[in-house]
Amino acid sequence: MNEPKPQDGHGEHKDYAGAKMGMWLFLFTEILLFGGLFLLYSAYLHRYPAAFHEAGKTENLLLGSANTVILIASSFTVALSITALRLGRTRGCLVFLGLTVALALGFLVNKFFEWSAKFAAGLYPGSAHMKSLPAGENVFTGLYFAMTGLHGLHVLVGSVLLSVVAALVARGRVNAGDFVLLENAGLYWHLVDLIWIFLFPLFYLIA
C-alpha cells in the first residue's frame, strides 16, 4: 500500500470548492440535455396516453428492474470508494471502483440483450415494422431508443472515467489528501444513476 503523499498546499494550486462547483455546472448542462428528452416524452405521453400504455407493455420489466438494481448498487459502491479513500484505505477504494465498473458492464450487457430482442422483433429506428405501428407506439419506441441510447453512452463514458480515476488512485496521484477527481467522477456516475431512476418508471412501469 502506498502512503498518501502529504498535501501541504505548496507547489500546485488546488481549488477544491471550485473544482466541485465546475463539475456541478457541467452536470446542470447534462440535466437540461436529458430534460429536453423528458419534455418530449411528457408531451407525447399527454398526446398518446393509450398508445404509450400499449407500447410500454412490450418492455421487459425483469431486465429493466435488474438494471435499476445494478445501477443503484454501482452508485452505492462509488460512494463507498470515496469513503474508503478518505479513510486512507487505498486497496478498499480500488476494490469498490472495480465493482462499480463491473456493474456498469453488467448494465450494458443487459441493455445489449434488450436491444437485440427489439431488433429481432423488427423494432429499430426507421424499420418497416416501426413505421407500420400506430403513431403513438412509434413515438414511444423512438423515444425509448433515443433516451436509453444516450443514457447507455453515458454509462460507457462513466465507466471509462472511473477506470482512469482508479488508475490514478493506484498510482497515488488521487489520495486521501487530494480526492476531488474521484468525487467529481463519482458525481458524474451518480447523475447517470439519477437519470436512470426516471427512465425506469417512464418506460417500464407506466404501462
Binding site: A79, L194, I197
Partner: peptide, 21 residues
C-alpha cells in the same frame, strides 16, 4: 400509477442527490 411512479422516483432521486452526491 403515473403519480406514484414519479413520486417514488423523486424520493429516490433526493436520496441520491443529498447523500450519495
Amino acid at each position: 400509477n403515473v403519480v406514484v411512479a414519479l413520486s417514488v422516483a423523486s424520493a429516490k432521486a433526493s436520496l441520491v442527490i443529498f447523500f450519495f452526491m
